[in-house]
């Protein structure tokens, strides 16, 4: 009884494989069905049938990739070829750049800017409570690592009147040593920390805090911006411009947001529009072709 069921099931699997992939001619179909009469043979066939589709899927997937690559190659020939090898990236935490900037300004004594609690501080606080609990239970004292924060480094550098280049050096050395975590949108396609965006955002937020206007959305044309591509898509009532941007060396998501929208605050719109390409905002690679969304209310 069981054997019959197994045979019928095996037959169904083989048949599905044949319908979906159709790798055999009609003659072989007949041959398969003949051999299904004997269970042993049927098992062998199942194994083969099970392997064949998988191999086919892999082969098809591979073919698809190579086709995509081939199709993509001419466009990217203009810029650099996409880097498949992942670069080393600085540690990130989920602290928001705007929170971090806000705290830098508050620490520098900017009027009207209050310290906000960053995600990193929340983590630290809850961890210290847990350590207190473990300490009470084990009787051993534990140490909560006093790790440097990006805020502290930037504040110290700004107070010391360091140049932009020097700040870039200091921050990147700290990030490369792994002693500091940075907001994800500051990570560039080369795996560095984009201190230009970091400093730009401090200036922008300082201007807004001082009552200045938010930066305007710049007008861009493909002639001025390397990697920008504008396509006109015809719709029923109007023509819509779709913009694409190929990631260049040294770009961070924050930098791309500033480039297209004037400030870092719209990085999430870009990130959401490219979720298929970007697993997280810091996983940006040279040669990736990002969709630049239209902001409705800007």
């Amino acid at each position: 009884m069981i054997r019959t069921v197994v045979v019928l099931f095996a037959f169904a699997v083989v048949l599905c494989g044949l319908i979906v992939f159709g790798p055999f001619g009609d003659d072989e179909d007949v041959a398969n069905q003949d051999r299904l009469g004997t269970p042993l043979e049927a098992d062998v066939e199942v194994t083969r049938a099970a392997v064949t589709p998988e191999t086919d899927i892999a082969a098809i997937a591979q073919a698809a990739v190579s086709v995509t690559e081939a199709a993509a190659a001419p466009q990217q020939a203009v810029v650099e070829a996409p880097q498949r090898v992942d670069v080393a990236r600085p540690n990130t935490d989920n602290t928001r750049l705007s929170d971090m900037t806000n705290n830098v300004l508050a620490e520098l004594g900017f009027a009207g800017v209050e310290h906000v609690t960053t995600n990193s501080e929340v983590q630290r606080e809850s961890t210290s409570q847990i350590l207190a609990g473990i300490e009470a239970a084990t009787g051993q004292s534990s140490i909560l690592q006093e790790s440097e924060t990006l805020e502290a480094i930037v504040i110290a550098a700004l107070r010391a009147g360091e140049s932009d280049e020097a700040i870039d050096q200091i921050v990147n050395n700290a990030a490369a040593a792994g002693s500091v975590a940075v907001p994800e949108i500051l990570v560039t396609s080369d795996g560095r920390v984009d201190t230009h965006v970091l400093l730009n955002n401090i200036v922008t937020q300082a201007q807004i805090a001082a009552g200045g206007a938010a930066p305007a959305v710049p007008e861009l044309s493909p002639e001025d911006v390397q990697g920008l591509e504008v396509r006109v898509v015809q719709q029923a009532t109007t023509d819509v411009q779709a913009r694409f941007y190929t990631v260049q060396s040294g770009d961070s998501l924050g930098a791309i947001s500033i480039k297209f929208f004037g400030s870092t605050e719209h990085f999430n719109a870009i990130f959401e529009a490219n979720r298929g390409l970007l697993s997280s905002p810091d996983r940006i690679r040279i040669g990736q072709r990002l969709v630049i969304p239209e902001l409705d209310n800007v």
Partner: peptide, 13 residues
């Protein structure tokens, strides 16, 4: 792994 202070907890254990 997202908790940057996880190594401190592991050390305490």
């Amino acid at each position: 792994a997202e908790n940057r202070f996880r190594p401190d907890i592991l050390r305490a254990l």
